[in-house]
Every structure is written in structure tokens, then in C-alpha cells.
Amino acid sequence: MIRNASIFLCSAAGFFIFFFADAAYAAGPANIQRMTDEQAIAGFVAAGAAYKAEDFASAVAQYQSIVDAGKESGALYYNFGNSYFKLGDLGRAILNYEKARRLIPRDSDLNYNYRYALAQMKEPATPPAESWTRRLLNGFIQFYTMEEMIIMLLVLGCFLGFLHLLSLYLKWPARTAGAVLSVLAAGWFLFFGAWGIKWYTCQGAAVVVEAGEAKFEPREDATTHFTLAAGMRIKLLKLEEDWAKIERPDGKMGWLPVRSFGLL
């Protein structure tokens, strides 16, 4: 009965995942002029040619037009980040590398450029020392995209349900069925947990595109609380007109103009 209940819960949880995933990601940018894939590819090639000609400003404009038209890809954000890097805009370069990492997290060129860009920050982020388990978990979470995780959840869920029914109808020994289903359920929960963490960390995440000062109050003339380097990843807590309450990785909170950061 417990096994049946756990299977039921797994399935129910899967159901709600997709429900929330739908709620979280269905809302895309509104009022944009969609372009076809062919048009997007043409724009991508043109931007690449501008980059090769070292006309980085033109390349940035071309890439921006594709994004504005509602298209995105990992390579697009990667090239976009490269163009900003060449223009010396480290903050926007890192922002675009972060966006690319959502789509092509295992791309070695991207990871190299991303780390290199982070190393160029005036105030490099010094993350606290992490245990090996934490590093392993972070590596696992970073390894897969959200889409891949959902596919894995679906496949594992279907497999779990299928094997569960098979074990019932073919009257497998309880120990065998329990072992097989437990392993699958553990895998399912692993992906579910990783997906949840990834989803949570992406919520309200932003990258500072212009080095600036976080204020105690959402006013230009307010006292500066702390400074933020371009490229630093922050968390958005609250929006209030042109100001956002943000949290720095070290936990400090302050108010920053919305123009100073870009959403992931």
C-alpha cells in the first residue's frame, strides 16, 4: 500500500510540476514581431560577419534584433556575449553568457568564455567554500537544461508507472519490485529536486550590467549601501517603479535602478 501510495504521489507530483512549469514559463514576451527561423538565421549570419569584421557594435545590434523578434538560441546568446565582451561591456557579456548557459550548459567554449569573463570582473565573485556534495549537486544541476530535466522526469515517470503496473499484473516478488521501483523513484526525485532548485534559482535572477551603487532607499540621492560590479549575479526581491530591491550573493540587500541589471 505504501508503495502504491508513493507511486501515486510521484505521479501527482509530476502532474503539478507540469502545471507549475506551464504557469511559470508560458508567459513569453508580448507584442513582439515574430520572425521566421530563416530570417533569424540570416540575421545570425549577418551578425557573425560583422563580428568577424570587428564591427562589434553592428553585431550587437543584429543579435539584439533577433532577440527582439522573439527568437533565442544558445549559440545566439553566446555570440551576443562575445560581441559585448569585445565592446568592453563585461556586464552584458556575462548576462548573455548566463542566458546561453540555460540553453547549452555543457558547451565547453561557452563555459570557458563565461569563466574568463568572470575572471575579468573588477571585483571577482568569491563564492564561499563549498563541500564536495554541494559542488556535485551544483554540477548536476548545471549539467542539464530545464527542458532536459523535464524530459527525464517524464521518461522516468512513464517508466516507473509502466514497471509498477507490470509488477502488479505479472505478480513480481515484492522485494524485486520494491528494489526496481525504489531505484527509479530515487532517480525521479533526484531530477525533481534538481529541477526545483534550478527553477527557484532562475526566478528573479539578474546580472548587473552597469557597475553601480545599491542604495538604502529607492532614490538617487539616498545613501549608498554597497557597490555592485558589472557581471555580478543578483537576486530580484521586489520591483518598485524604476527601482528594484536586490540581494547580493553575500546576502546584502539594497535598491538598484532597473537600468543597471538585466533579467536572465
Binding site: 563580428y51 545566439l76 540553453l103 567554449d109
Partner: peptide, 17 residues
């Protein structure tokens, strides 16, 4: 930094999966 990519890969509509 490593050079730009020549292929855009798969394009997705932003916010739609």
C-alpha cells in the same frame, strides 16, 4: 575569449517551450 559560433543551433520562441 573563444571565437563566435558559426551555427545558431535550434531557435526557440522566447518563453515558449
Amino acid at each position: 575569449i573563444v571565437f563566435i559560433k558559426g551555427s545558431p543551433g535550434d531557435f526557440y520562441p522566447i518563453g515558449q517551450r
